[in-house]
Write a protein that binds this DNA or RNA. Structure first.
Lengths: 231, 231
DNA sequence: AAAATAGTGTCTATAAGACACTATCAT
DNA sequence: ATGATAGTGTCTTATAGACACTATTTT
C-alpha cells in the first residue's frame, strides 16, 4: 500500500487468446503470423494491448476474438497471467491469457482483419522444433491443460460441438483433447449417465455412413456428476 | 496490436494474497484492516501495488507475504486476475491474486509491518453479513475453491502441515478445506495408497493422548495417483 | 450380402465406503 | 480398568473397462 508520493510503474496490459477447436478429429489452436517488430514473422497467439483504461479485460478478449478470428458467441474464460519482466523486449508487458473454445468451423478464418491467422494442430504448435513468439508456447500448454482438466468435471466438451451433435462427435472431442482412444460403447453409457450433460434434440438424425445417430444438444448442467474419468 | 501512435492506458497493477492456514481444525484466511482511504477500516486481503516496472509479479507476492504476514518459504501459486474497471474507486487497478498456503502457525502474526493482520475463519469471512473490501470476497471464494480442487489430485495438503505430521493431522486438512468428515480408517489406507504422497519420517512419535502416531513428511510426488476423491 | 457406425446387455476387476477388530498410549 | 487415538482386516456396493450382441444404415 503506497502511503507516500509514488510514481506509478509504466506497465502495458495485453490480452492473449488460446482459441481451441477441433478439425479432422485433431485439436487445433489459432495462430497468427506476426506483422510487426518483436518476433516479426513468427507464429503467435492472437491478442493485443488493452485499448484504453476503461476497457474491461474480458471485453478486450472478445474484441480480439472478433477482430482476429471472426468469432463471437464462443466459450471464453480467463486462463492465467504472464508477467515476467523479460517476456517482451518492448518493455513491461503483462499478458492476461484467455481460453476460448470454438465449435467446428466450416471456414478456417474468414477474410477478417488478420487473414494470416490459421488453425494449427496443437501437436505441431508444441513440437520440439516449433517456435512461438514470446512465452506463447507456455500459454498454449497451460490452455490445453486447462481444457483437459475441465473436460473431466464440466460440460466444456459441448463448446467444441455445434448446437446439435451426436455422441460420437462428443467422443471425438474427448479423444482429441485428452489424446487417448475411448471405447464408444462405454463412452455412450458414461455420457448418458451424467444427468443434465446432454439432452435429446428432436427425433432427427444424421447420416455419414452406418446407422443414423440420435442428435443431442448441451444440457442445463455445467458440472458433471459423475465426472468423466480420464484413463 | 498498435500500428499507430498510441497513448498507453494508465493502469495500476496490484498483487493480492489469499493466505490460507489451519487453526483449531478450521480453515482460516489472513485479513488486514485497511488503514487508508478506499474502504478504510474494512477487512481486506493483504496486498499492494507493484513497486516498480521491473518487479516480478511472484516476487511482489512474496514481498507482500513477508511484509504483511511475516511468512516466507510457504507454498505460493498464482490464482487469477481481477480487472473489472469499477473494482477500485481510485482508478483502473488490475489485481493479480495469489494463493498461499501456510503451515500451522504458532503465533497469529508477529510484530510485522501490519500488526493489524489477523487469521479469520473462512466461514466467518464469507458469512452473509461479512463485508470485505473491493471484490475480495470473490477472490477468497476462488482461492478456497482452488485449494479444494487441488487437494484432490495434488499433494497440496502437505503445505498446510509442519515438516513432520501425522496422518490424522493430514486428515484434518482435508476435512477443514473440504468441509466434510472422513472415516479415519479409510483415509489412512487411501493416503498410504497414493505412492509418493507421504513418506515415513523416522521412527519418532507424538503424544496428545491415545496411541502414538507415526510421523510422515511430504513425499517426492506432487500429482496424486490415485487421486483423493471428494465425497 | 459386407462394411460401418449406433446402441444395449453383461461380466469382471477394482475401488470406495462401512465397520469390526486389534494396538498402544494417558488417566 | 476406561477412554482415546492409531492402525489392520474384511465385507458390501458402486464403478470402470472389456467385450458379445443387436440395430440400422450405405455400398
Amino acid at each position: 500500500m503506497p502511503d507516500d508520493p509514488w510514481q506509478p510503474p509504466r506497465i502495458l496490459l495485453a490480452v492473449d487468446l488460446v482459441i481451441l477447436t477441433l478439425r479432422d478429429a485433431r485439436l487445433h489452436v489459432l495462430l497468427v503470423e506476426r506483422g510487426i517488430d518483436p518476433f516479426l514473422g513468427a507464429l503467435a497467439l492472437p491478442g493485443g494491448f488493452l485499448r484504453d483504461e476503461h476497457e474491461d479485460l474480458e471485453a478486450a478478449a472478445r474484441r480480439e476474438l472478433l477482430e482476429e478470428a471472426g468469432l463471437s458467441d464462443v466459450h471464453l474464460e480467463s486462463l492465467a497471467v504472464y508477467g515476467e519482466p523479460g517476456r517482451d523486449p518492448r518493455g513491461r508487458v503483462v499478458a492476461v491469457a484467455y481460453l476460448a473454445i470454438a465449435p467446428r468451423m466450416p471456414e478456417p478464418v474468414a477474410g477478417t482483419d488478420a487473414a494470416d491467422a490459421s488453425w494449427t494442430p496443437v501437436d505441431d504448435a508444441l513440437a520440439p522444433g516449433a517456435k512461438l513468439a514470446f512465452d506463447h508456447r507456455r500459454i498454449v500448454i497451460d490452455g490445453v491443460e486447462r481444457a483437459r482438466v475441465k473436460l473431466e468435471r464440466t460440460a466444456l466438451a459441448t463448446a467444441f460441438c455445434a448446437e446439435s451433435f451426436t455422441i460420437s462427435e462428443l467422443q471425438q472431442v474427448y479423444e482429441a483433447v485428452w489424446g487417448v482412444r475411448l471405447d464408444p460403447r462405454n463412452f455412450y453409457r458414461k455420457v448418458q449417465g451424467a444427468r443434465g450433460f446432454i439432452v435429446a434434440d428432436g427425433p432427427m438424425r444424421k447420416t455419414p455412413n452406418g446407422r443414423p445417430a440420435r442428435l443431442f444438444r448441451a444440457g442445463p448442467v455445467h458440472v458433471l456428476n459423475p465426472p468423466m474419468t480420464r484413463p
